[in-house]
Design a protein around this nucleic acid. Structure first.
Lengths: 146, 146
DNA sequence: GTAGGAGCTAGAGCCGACTCTAGATCAAAT
DNA sequence: ATTTGATCTAGAGTCGGCTCTAGCTCCTAC
């Protein structure tokens, strides 16, 4: 009836994190509940740990630094009553992520422009002069659509 | 008539890069044309260098590693005739960036979901049980709107 | 009984991209 | 004259996030 105990290796497989990373995360305080150990001192995880790690992986992938994940983890460990703080942390992160998406999208505009320039050069075989500047108002009277 | 010569400090101001970073980039081969020097051995930049750096900053901001920027820089330095390679490099980078935007967007879905959960808890004052799992098919029968 | 393989700890090492330091030079301002 | 401030070089240091190593303990299978 123990909800499927897992070894560190199994957790590594399911999460994609290395066993090294799993132990490292634990040291960093990135686990909602303290890891159980078996008789031999080996770590025993549950499915809920895997779920929690999946969340952490998403947060990391979206650029949340480990200290912030640790703070969040601590809040969750403390239990109900600090939802305002959790909300604040998540909202802050959301803003960072949307800002990052925005910046990447702006970068992508320029990259698309560059790709277009090279495609033109190659299509026409014309070795025309290449424009180095970004598509800014001054040197892009008409917008270079994708 | 020299197209507005600039000191390293001035370039630092205009680009937002530190003077340290500017010297570092130069050592790394991230400058289209070798930097001129004045009588005292100080670096002298032109507006074109600032433009080039602006491009490099965009590439960096979108996650292109310095070695790739160096390769690109070398191609540009070599002059016309390698547009296919430049195009290939830019297209590869474009794929990486779109992939990254995609991943961030998926992360954002979960983050929005989390924010929603906490908002609900706080709005209703209900200290209900919180769901840790991401909005995946299995545990999200109706889709949680943004 | 012994050889593998997985796990353990503590701590060192690595990588990328800068950042900072020390000690020297030089030009302009006081 | 001297002080201030910007610049120079070479090289050391930092930071985040792992990754790897060494040397040990287990358990299982042959």
């Amino acid at each position: 009836m123990g909800t499927t105990d897992l070894s560190i290796g199994q957790v590594s497989e399911r999460t994609g994190l290395s066993v090294h990373a799993l132990r490292f995360y634990e040291r960093e305080g990135i686990l909602a509940n303290p890891v159980r150990r078996d008789l031999g001192g080996r770590r025993v995880y549950g499915e809920d740990d895997v779920e929690w790690l999946a969340l952490c992986i998403i947060l990391r992938a979206s650029g949340m630094p480990l200290p912030a994940i640790r703070r969040y983890t601590e809040m969750v460990r403390q239990g109900d009553g600090n939802e305002e703080e959790r909300l604040a942390l998540m909202r802050l992160h959301r803003e960072r992520v949307t800002a990052q998406i925005g910046e990447l999208t702006r970068c992508l505009d320029l990259i698309n422009h560059k790709v277009g320039v090279y495609e033109d050069i190659l299509d026409r075989g014309a070795a025309g002069h290449e424009c180095v500047a970004p598509p800014s108002p001054e040197n892009r009277p008409e917008h270079a659509g994708r």
